[in-house]
């Protein structure tokens, strides 16, 4: 589904991605972890073309992301993305947030978009928040709306960029629960997270990044059993001690 082959990227002279290769098969959940500044967020943004890259090839569902003639908006509409800071549109209600791209990209009628929106809000248990503005939601609620907004486009894969890092501890689980359900339903997912409990529960593989390189890319059991890279072991020991 998602293939990343030998991707390198520079911001000016600074190399943020160094020859990265990995893949996410259909229905797989791949967790990406690593210290901040390791390039994991950049890598995920390369997958749907939010960040350009200079070398290598990324294909999603057989379409090359970096190719000149690729219809990026169309490709992106098939890949849901959830951000660390939710990024709901502040001037729209919750329902309008979920309907905007359904109507403007998928050309759905307003009724149809709203019906789909309400169904998804029901699914993330927020149906009574439809008319509220994002500012009136808690972080956990906002992130669940953001997930509903991405799902409204009927994506073939979902990207998560640290979806629980900005949340208060008591709200992390309500978001993780939604993600676990999604994973169990067979959604193809690439998830940047430090929630190792989530990784242990639903991940098929874990990718560990450091300084722009993919240092480790292993099956879940193998990764948590005995990480091969010394840095990965050090990283794990740091985040698992508490």
């Amino acid at each position: 589904m998602i293939e990343v082959e030998n991707v390198s990227k520079w911001f000016g002279d600074f190399q943020v991605l160094d020859d990265c290769s990995t893949q996410v098969d259909k229905g797989q959940v791949v967790v990406v972890c690593g210290p901040s500044g390791s390039g994991k967020s950049t890598l995920v943004k390369c997958v749907n073309g939010l960040e350009p890259f200079q070398e290598g090839i990324i294909t999603v569902n057989g379409v090359s992301v970096g190719a000149e003639d690729t219809n990026l908006p169309k490709l992106r509409s098939q890949i849901g993305m959830v951000f660390q800071n939710f990024e709901l549109f502040p001037h729209m209600t919750v329902l309008e947030n979920i309907c905007l791209s359904q109507m403007k990209v998928l050309k759905r009628e307003k009724d149809e978009a709203e019906e789909r929106g309400m169904k998804l809000l029901d699914r993330v248990d927020l149906i009574d928040q439809a008319a509220k503005h994002p500012a009136h939601l808690s972080g956990g609620q906002a992130q669940r709306v953001a997930i509903a907004r991405a799902l409204a486009m009927d994506p073939i894969a979902m990207l998560f960029d640290e979806p629980t890092s900005a949340l208060d501890p008591e709200m992390i689980n309500e978001v993780l629960d939604v993600m676990v359900t999604l994973a169990q339903e067979g959604m193809t997912m690439m998830v940047i997270t430090h929630e190792m409990g989530f990784a242990k529960q639903v991940a098929d593989r874990v990718v560990f990044m450091d300084e722009g390189r993919i240092e480790d890319d292993a099956g879940k059991d193998e990764f948590f059993g005995e990480p091969r890279g010394g840095r990965a072991r050090l990283f794990l020991s740091k985040i698992l001690t508490h």
Binding site: P73, G80, F83, L88, S101, V105
Partner: peptide
């Protein structure tokens, strides 16, 4: 992030 969120859903 707002621009990214818009682009990510397929908006031009």
């Amino acid at each position: 992030g707002q621009t990214h969120a818009g682009l990510a859903t397929g908006l031009t």
